[in-house]
Design a binder for these strands. Structure first.
Lengths: 138, 138
DNA sequence: ACTCGATGCTTGAGGACATCAAACAATAGG
DNA sequence: CCTATTGTTTGATGTCCTCAAGCATCGAGT
């Protein structure tokens, strides 16, 4: 029977885990010549195209900030803007093929996280999944 | 018996959890007028003073970068530099009382994370602790 | 003691990110 | 229509980040 960690201890471990994961992500992104903000943006777009505004909301930053980030991604053909057919104020941003590949590669290259997860059994992965869902619900 | 999530699903959930925690931290820091880099630095110093170099290593950034971050923290009396008595090249950085309080306050104000953890039973917290230790060993 | 390479920190230049205020176009509702 | 609102961009300012270069100090070897 393991001793029960205090909430503070768990907070600390959580912080450590987050730091490690984040560093892993940032470093994998840097290998592709991308900043973590750029890579985060690609991650959001991986599922579905989004308007500038909704990107800003998802990434919790100012809309004016997104302009620069998307500018730089677009300049490298990782992403492209497209005026919404239903509202001409809106610009929808979508991944290009290149962008899709870039973000997939980054995920594959997160070695620390990958090998960490490999240390879990199937049951443990299921349990971690469940617990994380409770702590960080969508 | 829960179905077993694929590794990709777990990676995704992990990314979501990390984002949420990181946003929580950043927002709590911003409430105190601190950037996340500044708050991260305070976190590292919470345990023990450290030299500029070791801070840079821990935070995975260039040493020249730390100069500016510590400059700004020192200007606000959250931290102070002190020449090492054993090696005059080295500057040891330590939290001031104010800095100690600031980082404690930030931790307390991470409400999303706090309430998330409150949703776990003691056993679940112990299990999450164990699993995270496996995935992200120190 | 003296030189020399290595180490610790800072400075300066240049790019990226973040926030705010302000501008502009387009929409929606009266 | 007129007006308020919304979506995006621009510009200013500060922070972060990386690189190259500089200075001071240390340590080992001669």
């Amino acid at each position: 029977m393991p001793s029960i960690p205090s909430k503070a201890q768990l907070m600390e471990l959580l912080a450590h885990s987050v730091s490690t994961h984040y560093a892993d992500f940032t470093s994998a992104a840097a290998d592709m010549g991308l900043t973590s903000s750029q890579a985060k943006t690609l991650t959001v777009l991986r599922r579905a195209p989004a308007s500038m505004r909704s990107l800003a909301i998802t990434l919790a930053c100012d809309a004016s900030n997104m302009t620069g980030i998307i500018d730089r991604l677009e300049k490298r053909d990782l992403v492209h803007r497209e005026v919404s057919p239903t509202d001409r104020r809106v610009k929808n941003v979508a991944l290009t093929e290149t962008g899709q590949k870039a973000i997939d590669t980054i995920r594959e290259r997160m070695e620390q996280t990958q090998t960490g997860l490999d240390n879990l059994s199937d049951e443990e992965r299921a349990e971690l999944f469940r617990l994380l869902t409770v702590v960080f619900p969508r």
